[in-house]
């Protein structure tokens, strides 16, 4: 397969033409978990959108609410978790309040999802072909034979050699990378408009990671699907995403074009994250560590959740919670970028 060229293509991804209407709009989405100790807010009033054909990277530490956001969008929150507020719109249609059966039909057909671990995403008792034809037939009225042909096409599309032989094999007969290819084929087999990829490469070997990311990228472009790429790997985001949203403690700290966020971070948390990426040729001392760790959901600090760890925190950060505001060419939820604050500081200094 020809991955080098597709990767080269994708380097110019930012210049690709876009439709006007966002494929996905999320507005003030809030996900809550009622527990005995009170209600935990895993995702707290977050808003973002994904344009047609766009890859939005979502980064953050574990527990920042990345996966929870993805799961909430596709409507698969495990009870007692629930969407407590806000709206999710897919191509303009509100989907967060649909009845189960209707949403079920959208899953796979309009929103696909790829999970972290290809080893456990496939049912060990069924052949790869069964998984594919089952999904294809759920979302179309193809016959068993047509569905099988489509499954074969998909398998060769995701770069599985000898699909005629492989289609009747079981997941355990595939390597991790091959299995993730099958998972990608499954997510794409009904041509969804949006793919939510939740850490699609975390469980794979480093050498396979790049292949899978390029495959996902190429296929989504060919199928016209937008991608919400959830990961904690900034390297993957930098290579793949058009825009990136940085999440911290259930909120978006910063969102902007990927180059901007990587090279010109506006939020102190993003700065810290970028400083924590090791570079070849950098010395050990160049690695910056963010003090402390992310707060638990039970103990979210007042004001800006990041203020206890923030080197630039000032009084207002402890009292008031910042919303996303323009910051350079991105948006950041940080009072440093509040025009009033800037004015005041200038006045003071």
């Amino acid at each position: 397969m020809n991955e080098t060229t597709t990767f080269a293509d994708s380097a110019g991804a930012t210049a690709r033409p876009r439709g006007n209407r966002p494929v996905l709009e999320v507005e003030k989405l809030r996900v809550e978990f009622p527990t005995r100790k009170g209600t935990l807010r895993a995702v707290d009033d977050i808003s973002f959108h994904i344009d047609e054909g766009e890859v939005l990277g979502v980064v953050g530490e574990s527990g920042a609410g990345k996966s929870m956001t993805g799961t909430a969008i596709i409507g698969l929150l495990e009870p007692p978790g629930r969407i407590a507020g806000g709206e999710v719109r897919l191509e303009g249609e509100r989907i967060d309040n649909l009845p189960y059966e209707k949403m079920r039909r959208y899953r796979g057909a309009r929103i696909g999802m790829v999970f972290q671990d290809p080893l456990t995403s496939l049912n060990p008792l069924y052949t790869v072909g069964f998984h594919l034809t089952e999904t294809i037939r759920t979302h179309s009225d193809l016959s068993e034979k047509q569905a099988r042909q489509r499954a074969l096409d998909l398998l060769s599309e995701v770069g599985i050699p000898a699909p005629e032989r492989r289609i009747d094999q079981y997941p355990h007969q595939f390597s991790g990378g091959m299995r993730q290819r099958v998972v990608v084929a499954l997510a794409l087999c009904a041509n969804p408009r949006l793919i939510i990829a939740d850490e699609p490469t975390t469980a794979l070997d480093v050498s396979i990671q790049a292949q899978i990311i390029r495959l996902l990228q190429r296929l989504c472009r060919e199928h016209g699907a937008s991608v919400m790429l959830i990961t904690h790997d900034m390297g993957v985001i930098a290579e793949t995403a058009d825009r990136v949203a940085v999440m911290y403690a259930g909120r978006i700290a910063e969102v902007g074009p990927v180059q901007e966020v990587v090279k010109n971070a506006q939020h102190p948390y993003t700065e810290g994250l970028m400083g924590a990426i090791p570079t070849i040729g950098g010395t050990h001392e160049d690695l910056v560590q963010i003090k402390g760790s992310m707060p638990r959901l039970t103990q979210i600090p007042s004001g800006c959740a990041f203020h206890p760890r923030c080197p630039k925190a000032f009084d207002r950060c402890r009292r008031e919670r910042p919303e996303l505001m323009p910051a350079g060419r991105s948006e950041a939820a940080c009072w440093l970028h509040d025009p009033a604050e800037k004015g005041r500081r200038r006045g003071n200094g």
Binding site: L76, R104, G112, F115, T120, T135, T138, A187, A190
Partner: peptide
């Protein structure tokens, strides 16, 4: 609770399946 059941749901399979 397994991933393949979550993935089966994410693929939009009916509950019965």
């Amino acid at each position: 609770r397994t991933d393949y059941v979550k993935f089966a749901r994410a693929r939009g399979l009916p509950n019965r399946a």
